[in-house]
């Protein structure tokens, strides 16, 4: 396949496409050594990070959600913090709060765990919606407002949340506003037979996670994110993105369609997806491939459709079969 033309265009930004692809390759290899047989999920997680969004890992317990998140954090040199969401967690436990200092009678702000580069919000649906909401501002604006004072978070800022499917015991389903702030929802699923056997052998002596090395710096990640923004999106492709999201707003089976924030997320993740395939422009194929994980968690089904056996990802996939593709 002829790639000459693409490498010409990549010279515009500070980072070359080849260098970026090499970095991403390193990250993927690193993660694959821990999470076996799930290249698609790893790719989606990286797309979320490069698109400057946040990722929601959702699956049944024991499929490697937390391990994947931890492995990514370890592969990048920034600060990594982890919050285990429990039912008694309070918003201030996440954002931080002011403490009284008796020596000089002033108040000192102690930063919460959100002041980090990568935040692992583990089991996010185990805490109450009240605490879940503390992440709203953090995730969409990368800032925290405590005691009336605005504090910026370090860059890059990437939230990886894990959760069990909301049908499970002792969980609080995430509110729609919260769900909308995740660029992607990634489901891991069970590994295939061979991969699961590899998992058994790879942990014979110690966890492969222990052997992970840092392969990228924060500056590199920021550069990648900047590079993603320069990927070209043709007006026809943007039109296609908007038609897809608009369709979900008119479907009678959906109570809530995809928001403009969702269109934006589809735009950014399509850019990242195209870049990871070594292209500097987005084709409708990129949009179609990334649309189900980006859109499915943002729609809310009508009760009738829900109990009629419909699933949101099916409806999103149906929209892909209904809307003509630009050529």
């Amino acid at each position: 396949m002829n790639r000459d033309s693409t490498s010409d265009v990549s010279g515009i930004s500070g980072m070359s496409l080849a260098a970026l692809l090499a970095d991403v390759q390193k990250l993927e290899t690193n993660l694959s050594s821990v999470i076996r047989g799930k290249p698609q999920s790893i790719r989606l997680l990286l797309i979320a990070m490069l698109a400057g969004g946040h990722a929601l890992l959702e699956d049944v317990p024991g499929t490697g959600k937390t391990t994947l998140a931890k492995s990514l954090a370890r592969s990048i040199s920034g600060i990594f913090r982890r919050v285990q969401f429990t039912p008694d967690l309070l918003p201030a436990d996440i954002t931080g709060s002011s403490f009284y200092r008796p020596q000089d009678g002033s108040f000192e702000f102690r930063e919460g765990p959100v002041f980090t580069n990568i935040l692992l919000a583990d089991e996010i649906n185990r805490t109450s919606p009240r605490t879940q909401s503390a992440l709203l501002e953090v995730m969409s604006e990368s800032q925290v407002t405590v005691d009336g004072k605005r504090r910026d978070l370090p860059r890059p800022f990437f939230v990886i949340a894990t959760q069990n499917p909301s049908e499970y015991h002792g969980t609080y389903p995430l509110p729609e506003a919260q769900l909308d702030r995740f660029a992607l929802r990634v489901t891991l699923g069970y590994p295939d037979h061979e991969s699961e056997m590899q998992v058994l052998f790879s942990q014979r002596e110690r966890h492969p996670f222990e052997a992970l090395k840092t392969v990228a710096t924060c500056e590199q990640v920021i550069a990648m994110q900047e590079r993603v923004k320069q990927v070209r999106v043709d007006p026809a492709v943007a039109d296609y993105i908007v038609r897809l999201t608009a369709w979900t707003r008119t479907d009678p089976r959906l109570r809530l369609g995809v928001s403009p924030r969702g269109s934006l997320a589809l735009y950014r993740t399509s850019q990242a997806s195209a870049l990871l395939q070594g292209r500097d422009f987005v084709t409708p194929d990129d949009v179609r491939a990334i649309a189900p994980p980006v859109l499915a968690h943002r729609v809310v089904l009508e009760t009738k459709a829900k109990y009629g056996g419909q699933r949101s990802d099916q409806i999103v996939e149906e929209s892909l079969d209904k809307i003509p593709v630009p050529r």
């Binding site: 396949m1 033309s5 693409t6 070209r232 026809a236 422009f281 084709t283 050529r327």
Partner: peptide, 13 residues
Amino acid sequence: SEYDILRFGAADD
């Protein structure tokens, strides 16, 4: 592939 480059990548060849 070539068409996509021209159509969506705005190349001119």
